[in-house]
Every structure is written in C-alpha cells, then in structure tokens.
Design a binder for these strands. Sequence first.
DNA 1: GGGAGTGCCCGTTTTACGTCA
DNA 2: TATGACGTAAAACGGGCACTC
Length: 239
Amino acid sequence: MAVEKEDLGLSLSLSFPQNYNSLQLNLMPSLVPSSVISQKPSWNDTFHSSDPNSDSCRADTRSFLRGIDVNRLPSTADCEEEAGVSSPNSTISSVSGKRSEREGNGEEHEMERDCSRGISDEEDGDTSRKKLRLSKDQSAILEESFKEHNTLNPKQKLALAKQLGLRPRQVEVWFQNRRARTKLKQTEVDCEFLKRCCENLTEENRRLQKEVQELRALKLPTVLHANDPTYHPHHVPFM
DNA sequence: GGGAGTGCCCGTTTTACGTCA
DNA sequence: TATGACGTAAAACGGGCACTC
C-alpha cells in the first residue's frame, strides 16, 4: 500500500468529560479537517489565474481542455478507440465521452505522450484496463500536493501530471480517491468521538443515578413523614 | 427556462499485492 | 518452495448533482 493509514497523519486528542471543547481532530499535518477541506488552497498562488472558480480560469480551461480523452493511453490508445475497442467495463460513450470532451487539449496530449509508464502498460496488446501502481516517489509528491491543497484547478493538475509523468486524469482520480479516504478517515474519527461521548455520558448517568439513590436514602424518613398525616415528631410508634 | 460543458462526489468495479494454509 | 484462495488497498469507472455560461 502506497499510503498507510498512519501516513494520513491522523491524531485524535480527547479529553472527557471535563472539557469537551478540548477535542482536537487533526487529520493531516497541514490539512485541517472538515471545515477547511473545501477551502481553496493557497497553492493556487503558484499558478496565476489559479482560482478554479474564476471565470477566466473556467473559460480558459474549457477552451483549453477539449477533444482528447485523457483516459486513453498514449499511442496505442488511439488505435483502440478507433477500432471500437475499450476496456471491458467501459463503453465508448462512458469515460471517453464524459471526460474526453472536457479534458482534451494539446498540452495534455503532448504530455501524455511522455507518459512512459502508460505506454508500456498498454503496449503489451492487452485491451483490459491495466491499473497503474504509482511509485513511492509519485505517491509522495501527490501527498505533498494534497497537503497543500486537496483540490486542483486544471493548471495545477496539468503541472502535477507533467511533473509525475502521469495523465491528468490519473492525477484527478488520485485526488478524488484521496479526498474520499480523508473523508472516510474523518468519519471514523467522528464515530470514535461520538462513541467516547456516549460512553462518558453513560458513565455520568450511572454516577448521577447512584448519587440520587444515596440522597433519597438519606432523606427518605423526612419525605415519608412529611406525607404521613399521622406522623408526630415526638410520637414513638409501636414496634 | 433549458441545454451544454465542467468539476466533484459517491458507490462500485477491477486490479495489484500481501498473507496464509 | 510453489501455488492457489482470500482479503485489502487503491486505481479506475460511471452516474448524478450543482454550477456556470
């Protein structure tokens, strides 16, 4: 496994029941969980025009990315598509349809040619989809990027893909899966937190119940006498 | 208002790889 | 030691939704 669970940098600090506010969830060293996950990264500054939501960027991207299916591996991929051969589980209109229209562009195409691993994977003539195991270096770089920003704008994606010698689609998929793993991890942490909350509340409830019983035991005579109209403080009942 | 294009999320499938009998 | 079954992590896929133009 390229990324161990520990590599996610998870740490959980719990302090119960004195101060629930002391709970700290730190999923990753530089990635603040939940609330910040959706924030746009500062790394955007690296790429000017980098706000993925900006009009210029989107328009840029749209014209930028068109016409090439990044899922298609370089070289032989073209032949396969034209021959109507795709992966066993994908139709021509599936991946190549949805992604090709939005991610194809000259730069990516050129970059894909440089993807030696992809080429070698496909050159064996096997038409089934080959899953590429990322190298440790590739995973490390992706992790570093993810720590900086857990989403990518198109330019960042291209730059990263180029740097790693991967297809932009692979980088995109990696980030999607990485976000999913982070979310799953956060859910596990949240569940653990709630579980501990429940345990502490149960214990607190048990303690309070016991305390109530003790108080009732102490005050029982008074309570009974107060409700007893025949009671007289100096009256000694028959035994 | 609605269609097209795009990005992201989510659930699922497929594949690579480690473990164990 | 070889090998096949099995489990798991992760890469990849497909559909849906939201958003923008």
